[in-house]
């Protein structure tokens, strides 16, 4: 129990997928203009993360490993992730059109979200069990959510700030992200106890 909590804490805060591992920067910069869409995006990503990590675990352990096809991991994972995202999009379009309208442009981004592939590959590399893999993915999703929503709030305020033209737009976004990463350094070591 305690161990699982540490995995969660570790992936969500200490080794935050965006701010410490620098994975998934594309949606982090792209879908952080409004708190609401950031929330939708991060929830969708968390969902996809958990789903794909479970699927890729099955793929890895039931297909690739027994057949000795480890070298096809990246290709196979991409295939599964892309199909899953597509599927999620279809379902979302049908059942929650409002959310789809907000995320419509960005959902396909999850396909190429390196956080999703990265987490799946990391799990495979470490040979983690099924439950830890899913937990790890879930923690990463939570970390992604925290980072994205915090950042969206900051950017909503940035939009109202009188940022000098030289910094306005992406530059100040990256500076803010850097400072946010600086703040997250404070969580270092939390899971060592």
């Amino acid at each position: 129990m305690n161990e699982w909590l540490m995995v969660l804490l570790g992936t969500a805060l200490v080794n935050n997928v965006v701010l410490v591992k620098f994975l998934g920067l594309c949606p982090f910069m792209g879908v952080s203009r409004k708190i609401d869409s950031a929330l939708g995006m991060s929830l969708a990503t968390t969902f996809v993360l958990v789903l794909t990590s479970a699927l890729t675990w099955v793929l890895e352990h039931e297909l690739l490993a027994p057949l000795g096809l480890g070298y096809l991991r990246i290709l196979g994972f991409i295939l599964v992730i892309a199909a899953t995202v597509q599927f999620v999009e279809l379902v979302m379009k049908k059942n929650t059109p409002e959310l789809h309208q907000v995320l419509g442009l960005y959902l396909p981004l999850i396909t190429t979200n390196c956080a999703v592939l990265g987490i799946a590959l990391l799990n495979a590399q470490e040979g983690a069990g099924f439950v830890p893999s899913v937990l790890y993915a879930f923690g990463s999703g939570v970390g992604f959510t925290i980072a994205l929503i915090l950042f969206a709030g900051l950017r909503e305020r940035l939009a109202l700030a009188r940022v000098p033209a030289a910094f306005s737009g992406a530059p100040i976004g990256f500076i803010t992200a850097g400072l946010l990463a600086l703040a997250f350094m404070g969580f270092a070591g939390l899971t060592n106890h």
Binding site: G153, L154, L180, H193
Partner: peptide, 29 residues
């Protein structure tokens, strides 16, 4: 308190303030 008690850094005030600064727009919202 959390950073001081369990974190890698002995002092956490600066980190805590920065983290809460980051959360400020959300809190306001």
């Amino acid at each position: 308190w959390i950073i001081r008690t369990w974190g890698a850094y002995p002092e956490g005030v600066a980190f805590a303030v920065l983290l809460m600064n980051a959360a400020t727009p959300l809190i306001d919202h």
